[in-house]
Every structure is written in structure tokens, then in C-alpha cells.
Nucleic acid binder design. Structure first.
Length: 573
DNA sequence: GCCGTTTTCGGCCCGACTGTTTTCAGTCG
């Protein structure tokens, strides 16, 4: 049983206990343990086998025993019994807005409601209004919540939400009385998927009401979920929710930090404040009743003895400890990127000619570009036969003569077959400057098969880099069951480069993998995987994830100069 | 259920908004 499965079960135990009305702190310890396990760098098997689970903060005697049982036997009696004691569908009810464990317990005990279908029926039969704690409004809200869940039961890709965030900022920022404005939340943290848009404004108090009214009556507002003096929530016509908070300008730095989160980061920050005998909330950092003035987030961190932590890192992933030791990395910047690899031309499934790609890359100021089309077994993508490789290389040579201001690398995205072999023989592979191995078919594999297949590709001396190593498609397809940390350890062993695919549907290697790769000294290459000129713009999403994964300029292959690349990685010919 | 720079017991982050109440519990972030 892997980390993800263990974490899922611990979370479910928390939810079940919550619905049963258990001690909320006990419930929280399960949620905490679930999160801790899912973000572990080490393997859960290793920790269990070496009896080191208890070294993890938040795992005590009871959880140690339960996790050990789960990992060694694949089962947990406590969990099975708990599941058997409540109907299966109750947990689903937690996903309906406005329904939490207390209310679900009431619905189950008083009306014997055990799943969403029964709940919807009971609402339509008007049976909730007479329940204690419920009324006509809550019944209506639940019905709408069910409808909403069926229509938009999802998170959104970062670019979709970014666009909506821009719209809201544009419409709000000129309003009278506004002093400072920013997006906050997971959008500011550059998470790969985002659920809603948090916006924070500091304003003169007398304008607060007008700002709220404008926000709630924007043309794209589908529904006002809540409207108050300092906080309002709306749903846009895209199905994306947005929360707006308005505070005074003195409160702004504390509020910006608070609403940027993550929740876990905030909890940790409050613990730090407490150690200083101070209290941190969205309105200030208080000693006794006196606020310690901070004019921006930098000063707030400083007041807690911490180095500034960029928003992307605030995931409770070691950043506070690093800030205490003054070890926050100097994160990668967009202009650190000096060239691009993994671009598809119209030789395979891209839409643009090589010349147009080259011209665009010159225009964007890049020093080099690697054309990497698909290999022959990718029929669906018009993969290159041996003859067409020769043809492409002739064209690249000619273009290189014409455009001396940029280095054009001859690359290939070569398919890794299910046995781990590559799509061309070594002689053909040697004719490329850059060989990127990738899996595109036969995705149904066991963890062992996936590892064997990928590691065999790593061992091939002709392979320079592995593309989108887990194969995930965000919100659409699960990654194949590859133990990514083990895989990265192998990549380190063979000195291979790992792609961070910048396409917002992939963002693969993910940010946790980036941090692990950095620890191993594995170089990461941020690739647009572009099939058009527009696709080159995706680089910014890859850079966002690289930052989130603690990466610095030194960790990134394509922040090197042409000379360094040719000397250390791709032979000059 | 976890944890300990006063603690092996008694805490555990904190506040806004809603809908139900008529002072507050529940939910959410």
C-alpha cells in the first residue's frame, strides 16, 4: 500500500469520526496525519519497516499501530469496523456546501438519509424544514448545492482561474477608496489547479460598502452566495467562485498573508507567533493587546524572526523551518530561461513550420531552440520515419545557416515502448543532439512495470532526458503508478535530465517532485511541449511550478548558455 | 489522538457569515 492510499484511508477515518461526533481534536489528528503522510518525501514502506513512523510529528502510538497494520497487511480492522458502522454514502454528503459533519449526523439520525439521492428527495418533499437547526433557507441551499456539485464538481486549471482573476482585478481596481488590491489564496500560491479566487482589498472604511455592492453586481456574477461588510462570496458564470475581503490598510499585510494561506502554512505561522507569546490573525500580530505594526508581508515575516517566504512556497512543506535558518532559495525567474526544448513542428503533430518556430524564439530572445517531434510509432501524431528524420535534419542545417543568432538543436521525443526499449536504433538516436524519452501508449501498468520500463529508458546512454514522467493529465487522467521518488533517484544515478512539462494540463514533474529532484541534484528542464506558437506562452506555468518546487536558476537545464549545454550535455558537432 | 523551554494532563489557530435562533451552532476558509 502506498502513501496515497494510506493518506486516503486516514482522511476517510477522520471524516467518519467527524460524522459520528467524535472529539474534534481526535478527528483533526487523523486529517493531519493524512496530510503529513501524503506529503512525505520518504517511502512509507521504508518508514514502517525501519520502525521510524513515530519520528514523524503528529504520529503517536495509536496512529503508528494503525498505519503499520495498514502497510503490512493491506487492511485495517479499525477502519473496516468504522466503515461498517455507517452507510457508505454519508461521506459524499460532506462535499455539498453548507453541509458539515454535525448536520449530516442530524440528517442521518432523524431522517435516515444515507446518500445524496435520498437527501435531494427529502428536500423536495420538504422534510428538512422541521428539523432542528434547519429551515426553508438551508433546505433550498442544500438543493442548490447538489445541483452545483453535479454541474461543477471540479477544480479548475490554473490558466482558467488566472483569467477570471484578471477580470475581477480589472473591474475592481479603479474603484473609489481602494488603496491596495491583490489576488490571494491558491491562485497566488500558483497551485496547478484552483478551486476559487480570493481577492483582498484595503480601502477607506466609508467605501467598503460600495466596493462590496459593485463586486456582487458585476455583469458576470451568476449568484451571490454571501454578502457582508467585510466579506462577500459570488459565483461567476464560469462556475468559479470568488471571495472578496475588504480590510483597512493597516490590516492589509496580515490579511494578505492570511488569505494567501495555505491553511497548513497559517497554522504553523500561528504556532510560531505563539512561541513569541504573540497572537497572529488576519488583522494583526498582537503582543498583549498591542499590534506590532508591519507595512508589508516582508515586515510581518521579519517580526516573527523569519526570512521572507514567497507565496508559492507557503504549503507547509518545510518553508518555515528554512526561513528560520535563512535558507529560503532564490527562486527561478522568467528571464533566467535562455532557451527551449520539446517543441513540435508540422513534421509531426505541431501546426507551425520549423522556420516560424525559430523566428518566434529569436523574437522572444531565446539563445537556442530544440525541435523535438514525435517518433515513428506515434502514428496518431504523424511520428517521424527514418527518411523524414534525414529530411528534417537537412532543413535544420539549412535554417541554422540562415539564422546564426540562435542555436537550433536537433531533438526527438522518442517513444518508450512497453518493454522499455526505444523507437529507433542507436545509430539513428545518435544523429540527434537531444533525445527525450517519453511514454505515450500502453499506460495501464503496475508500479513495478512502470518502474522497469522507465528505468530501462534511463539506462540507455542515448537518452538525455525523460518527458512528462508520470503521464498525468490534470483533472482528467491519473498518473501511472510510478514511484516518482525512486525514479528520480535512478535518474540521479544515471545523470539524466527530467522534464518539467509546462503545459497547464500536465505540469509534470509536479512541484513536490521538483523539490525532491533538487535534493538529489537532478537537473530539471522546463519544456513548453508546444504544438503552436501560442503554446510557447505555457512556459510561465512551468516556471510557476518550478518556483513552487523550490527550484533556483542553478537547478534548471535551460537556464544554461549554449556553450555550457554543449560542453556538459549535448555534444557540439 | 498528539504533544511537552512551566505540562504526562489539558490544551490543541482564529474569525466571518448564515440561518436559525432570540444568543448561538455550524460551516467555511
Amino acid at each position: 500500500m502506498n502513501k496515497k492510499e494510506v493518506a486516503k484511508i486516514l482522511e476517510e477515518i477522520g471524516e467518519l469520526l467527524d460524522i459520528k461526533g467524535e472529539n474534534p481534536f481526535k478527528v483533526r489528528s487523523y486529517y493531519n496525519a493524512s496530510r503529513t503522510i501524503s506529503t512525505l518525501q520518504e517511502d512509507i514502506d521504508t518508514l514502517v519497516n525501519q520502525g521510524r513512523l513515530r519520528e514523524i510529528k503528529g504520529i503517536g502510538e495509536a496512529l503508528n499501530n494503525k498505519i503499520t497494520e495498514l502497510v503490512t497487511t493491506g487492511k485495517l480492522k479499525y477502519y473496516e469496523d468504522l466503515k461498517a458502522s455507517l452507510p457508505e454514502g454519508l461521506i459524499d454528503l460532506l462535499s455539498i456546501p453548507s453541509l458539515g459533519p454535525r448536520k449530516i449526523k442530524t440528517l442521518y439520525e432523524k431522517l435516515n438519509i444515507t446518500n445524496i439521492g435520498e437527501l435531494e428527495y427529502a428536500c423536495k418533499e420538504n422534510r428538512l424544514v422541521s428539523l432542528e437547526g434547519f429551515g426553508p433557507k438551508s433546505q433550498q441551499n442544500i438543493l442548490e448545492g447538489i445541483k452545483f456539485k453535479r454541474k461543477y464538481d471540479r477544480r479548475f486549471l490554473y490558466p482558467e482561474v488566472e483569467k477570471e482573476g484578471q477580470y475581477l482585478l480589472e473591474r475592481l481596481k479603479g474603484l473609489k477608496g481602494i488603496i491596495r488590491i491583490s489576488v490571494a489564496g491558491s491562485l497566488r500560491r500558483k497551485c496547478e489547479t484552483v478551486k476559487d479566487i480570493d481577492i483582498l482589498i484595503s480601502a477607506e472604511p466609508e467605501f467598503s460598502n460600495d466596493i462590496m455592492n459593485t463586486f456582487c453586481s458585476l455583469d458576470r456574477v451568476e449568484k451571490v452566495i454571501a454578502q457582508g461588510d467585510t466579506k462577500s462570496s459570488i459565483m461567476l458564470d464560469s462556475g468559479i467562485n470568488s471571495d472578496l475581503r475588504v480590510v483597512s490598510d493597516e490590516q492589509y499585510p496580515y490579511a494578505l498573508h492570511y488569505f494567501t494561506g495555505s491553511k497548513e502554512h497559517n497554522v504553523e505561522m500561528r504556532r510560531v507567533a505563539k512561541k513569541f507569546n504573540r497572537k497572529l490573525n488576519e488583522y494583526g500580530l498582537f503582543e498583549e493587546e498591542k499590534n506590532i505594526p508591519c507595512k508589508d508581508e516582508e515586515e510581518l515575516f521579519e517580526a516573527l524572526g523569519l526570512q521572507y517566504i514567497p507565496p508559492e512556497l507557503r504549503e507547509s512543506f518545510g518553508e518555515i523551518e528554512a526561513a528560520q535558518k535563512n535558507q529560503i532559495p532564490k527562486l527561478l525567474e522568467e528571464n533566467d530561461i535562455r532557451g527551449l526544448f520539446h517543441i513540435h513542428s508540422n513534421y509531426s503533430d505541431g501546426v507551425e513550420s520549423i522556420e516560424n518556430i525559430v523566428k518566434k524564439c529569436i523574437e522572444l530572445g531565446y539563445e537556442y531552440v530544440g525541435i523535438c517531434d514525435h517518433s515513428k510509432s506515434a502514428y496518431y501524431a504523424n511520428g517521424l520515419t527514418e527518411e523524414r528524420i534525414i529530411q528534417q535534419h537537412r532543413e535544420i542545417d539549412a535554417l541554422q545557416g540562415k539564422y546564426s543568432q540562435i542555436k537550433i538543436f536537433k531533438g526527438i521525443e522518442v517513444d518508450i515502448a512497453s518493454d522499455g526499449s526505444l523507437d529507433y536504433n542507436d545509430d539513428i538516436l545518435k544523429s540527434f543532439d537531444v533525445v527525450i524519452g517519453a511514454i505515450h501508449s500502453k499506460l495501464k501498468m503496475t508500479a513495478e512495470e512502470a518502474m522497469e520500463r522507465m528505468v530501462k529508458a534511463l539506462r540507455n546512454p542515448e537518452v538525455d532526458m525523460i518527458a512528462h514522467p508520470t503521464g498525468r493529465l490534470l483533472l482528467a487522467r491519473e498518473p501511472y503508478p510510478l514511484n516518482i521518488n525512486h525514479f528520480l533517484e535512478e535518474a540521479a544515478k544515471y545523470g539524466k535530465i527530467i522534464e518539467l512539462n509546462a503545459n497547464p494540463h500536465r505540469l509534470d514533474l509536479d512541484w513536490m517532485g521538483c523539490k525532491y529532484a533538487k535534493g538529489l541534484g537532478v537537473k530539471v528542464c522546463i519544456n513548453p511541449d508546444a504544438h503552436s506558437l501560442i503554446g510557447l506562452n505555457d512556459m510561465k506555468y512551468g516556471i510557476g511550478i518550478a518556483r513552487k518546487g523550490w527550484l533556483e536558476k542553478e537547478d534548471i537545464l535551460n537556464s544554461l548558455s549554449v556553450k555550457e549545454l554543449q560542453e556538459k550535455y549535448f555534444d557540439a558537432e
